[in-house]
Simulated assay, not measured.
Amino acid sequence: MQRLPGIINIYYVLASSLMASITQKALADAPVGVFADTFLIPHIGDAICEMETQFDNNDTLEKVKLSFSTTSQLPAHEHLAFVIQTVDGKQYLIGTADKPFPVIKAWIL
């Protein structure tokens, strides 16, 4: 399991607004751009992003878990993708316009 350190910003984007070929571009190591409205999620404390790679039937599966606390309510009724930004300025996209969409689990404190 890999952990991404130093998350400073978290954004959400409607998955339907992402380009359909984004997965193929990423697999080809081509730069991927998000040309859609992104919405900053104010988060409290440290955000954690963990990635695990599994191999199943000659296919590679990547599972990503993003955990954070926020005072904002997310539009969980929509299919969302997330953009995270690290302290070194790099950005990572979690999710695509295609299934499977990220699963959102929210608890109200």
Results as ranks from 00 to 15, higher is better:
Leu14Tyr: 14
Glu78Leu: 09
Ser67Leu: 12
Ala81Thr: 04
Lys25Ala: 14
Cys49Arg: 01
Leu80Pro: 01
Pro42Phe: 06
Val64Lys: 02
His79Tyr: 08
Leu18Phe: 06
Val34Phe: 04
Lys63Val: 06
Thr23Glu: 09
Leu18Glu: 00
Phe39Arg: 07
Cys49Asp: 02
Ala47Arg: 08
Asp37Gly: 11
His77Leu: 10
Ser67Lys: 13
Gly6Ser: 10
Glu62Cys: 04
Gln85Arg: 09
Ala36Tyr: 04
Thr23Ile: 14
Met51Asn: 02
Ile84Trp: 00
Thr23Asp: 07
Glu52Thr: 12
Glu78Lys: 14
Ser72Pro: 05
Pro75Ala: 03
Phe55Glu: 09
Tyr12Pro: 00
Leu66Ile: 06
Leu14Glu: 08
Ile48Val: 10
Ala30Thr: 10
Ile41Leu: 14
Tyr12Ala: 01
Pro75Gln: 05
Asp88Arg: 03
Met51Asp: 02
Phe39His: 11
Ser72Ala: 15
Phe82His: 00
Pro42Gln: 15
Thr53Asn: 02
Ala30Leu: 12
Glu52Pro: 00
Thr70Ala: 08
Ser21Arg: 10
Met19Arg: 15
Gly6His: 03
Asp29Glu: 13
Gly33Arg: 12
Asp56Arg: 09
Ala36Leu: 03
Ala76Leu: 10
Asp56Ser: 08
Cys49Ser: 05
Asp29Lys: 11
Glu52Ser: 11
Asn57Ile: 02
Thr71Ile: 10
Phe55Gln: 09
Ile84Asp: 00
Glu78Gln: 11
Val83Thr: 00
Ile7Glu: 01
Asp46His: 07
Asp37Glu: 13
